[in-house]
Amino acid sequence: MEPRRYSALIRTFNSRATLPATIQSLSAQNWRPLRYVFVDSGSTDGTLDIVPAGSVVHRYVGEEFSYSGSLNQGIDYLDTDYVLIVSSHTVLTNPDAVAYAITLLAENDGIGAAYFCAEDEGCLSHILIDQTNFTGFNGVWNTCAVVKTALLKKRRFRPEVFSAEDQEWSAWLFKVERKSVARISGGGMGYRNPRKHPMRKRLNENIAVALYVKPEMLGLPYLARVIYRVFRPVSAWRERVFNARLLVSLVRCQFSQPKLKSRYF
């Protein structure tokens, strides 16, 4: 099959240590990006000195960083039917991964996007996520996802969503467009983020999902389940600490809107 044109949209911030591996893995794909679009949020480590020749480089505009805003600014430069949104610390080791994802989208009008699981390289396969099995956490994952550009231009990421902007967008895709998302295994997607803030990042994502995607997480039945996880004896202490912090945050959301902002984890 003739390779289909796509762009790679990459957010960067002091990514010099990890970006070369990302670019190398995309260069090793059987279907390579037609162009790279970088949205940089003020790197000071020489990140922009190592981007491929001919790349579009956009410096983030805004007083405060926003995941949604940075992607939306990059979308303005897209002129291909498909876009690979990928983090600057992510690699794809299966050379057929992108071709598999784009072929799925091209041959199935009912699939609006596809994303790669953080799994070892293997036989490529997928399952479909739609409104019937969407949990609020298994929609498009902007760490490494192929999306139909027309859908992103039709409805961009909501600027006020400080985290999990991909899950909020997925909820729109399922409900309004009636399209599904393919969750792909076997792509060899590796997440090599040197910034170690997994609990804070996970907490922000959960709060954002509760506020913008799954409001039932603010209800008593869900809070009761979180309380159970806090005191469950067999749980690892880190999980118990996380759930305790989540419980406090969700209760606070009952009384006031949290003043959380996007952070570059």
Score class of each variant (00 low, 15 high):
Ala53Cys: 12
Ser55Lys: 04
Glu63Met: 08
Thr47Phe: 07
Ser55Asp: 06
Ser66Lys: 02
His58Pro: 14
Asp79Gly: 10
Ile50Arg: 01
Ser68Val: 03
Gly54His: 14
Ser55Ala: 06
Val83Trp: 11
Ile85Leu: 11
Pro52Met: 03
Glu64Asn: 13
Asp79Ser: 15
Asn72Val: 03
Gly62Cys: 01
Leu48Val: 13
Val56Glu: 11
Thr80Asn: 09
Val61Gln: 14
Ser68Asn: 08
Tyr60Thr: 03
Val51Thr: 00
Arg59His: 09
Tyr82Ala: 06
Ile75Glu: 09
Leu84Gly: 11
Ser55Val: 07
Leu84Gln: 03
Gly69Trp: 02
Leu71Tyr: 14
Asp81Asn: 07
Tyr77Asp: 05
Ala53Trp: 05
Leu78Asp: 04
Leu84Cys: 08
Asp79Thr: 15
Leu48Tyr: 01
Tyr82Ser: 05
Asp49Lys: 10
Ile85Asp: 01
Tyr82Pro: 01
Val83Pro: 04
Gly54Ala: 12
Thr80Cys: 15
Thr80Lys: 02
Leu48Phe: 04
Asp76Ala: 15
Glu64Met: 09
Asp81Leu: 04
Gly74Lys: 07
Gly54Arg: 08
Gly62Thr: 03
Leu78Trp: 11
Val57Ala: 12
Ser70Gly: 07
Glu64Ile: 06
Leu78Thr: 00
Asp49Ser: 12
Asp49Trp: 09
Val56His: 11
Phe65Thr: 02
Ser70His: 07
Val57Arg: 11
Tyr67Leu: 14
Pro52Cys: 00
His58Cys: 15
Ala53Arg: 10
Asp81Gln: 07
His58Ser: 13
Leu84Ser: 05
Gln73Ser: 04
Val56Gln: 13
Thr80Gly: 06
Glu63Leu: 12
Ser70Phe: 06
Asn72Arg: 01
Glu63Asp: 13
Tyr67Arg: 09
Ile85Tyr: 09
Ala53Lys: 10
Gly69Gln: 02
Asp81Met: 04
Ile85Thr: 06
Ser66Gly: 01
Val56Asn: 12
Gln73Trp: 05
Asn72Trp: 01
Ser66Asp: 05
Asn72Ser: 04
Leu78Tyr: 09
Phe65Pro: 02
Gln73Ile: 02
Asn72Ala: 02
Val51Ile: 00
Ser68Lys: 00
Val61His: 10
Leu71Cys: 12
Arg59Asp: 03
Ile50Leu: 05
Ile50Asn: 01
Asp49Arg: 11
Ile50Glu: 02
Asp79Lys: 08
Tyr60Pro: 02
Ile75Asn: 13
Gly54Val: 12
Asp76Ile: 14
Glu64Ala: 09
Glu64Tyr: 11
Arg59Thr: 07
Ser68Gly: 00
Gly74Ser: 05
Leu84Trp: 08
Ile50Phe: 00
Gly54Cys: 08
Ile85His: 06
Gly54Thr: 10
Arg59Leu: 07
His58Asp: 14
Ala53Pro: 14
Tyr60Trp: 00
Ala53Leu: 14
Gly69His: 03
Val61Lys: 13
Asn72His: 03
Asp49Asn: 15
Gly54Ile: 15
Tyr82Asn: 05
Ile50Val: 01
Ile50Asp: 01
Tyr82Gly: 06
Leu71Arg: 15
Asp76Asn: 12
Gly69Pro: 01
Thr80Asp: 11
Ser66Trp: 04
Gly54Tyr: 09
Ser66Pro: 05
His58Lys: 14
Thr47Glu: 09
Gly54Lys: 11
Asp81Val: 02
Ser55Gln: 00
Glu63Thr: 08
Asp49Val: 15
Leu48Met: 14
Gly62Glu: 06
Glu64Lys: 08
Glu63Ser: 14
Tyr60Val: 00
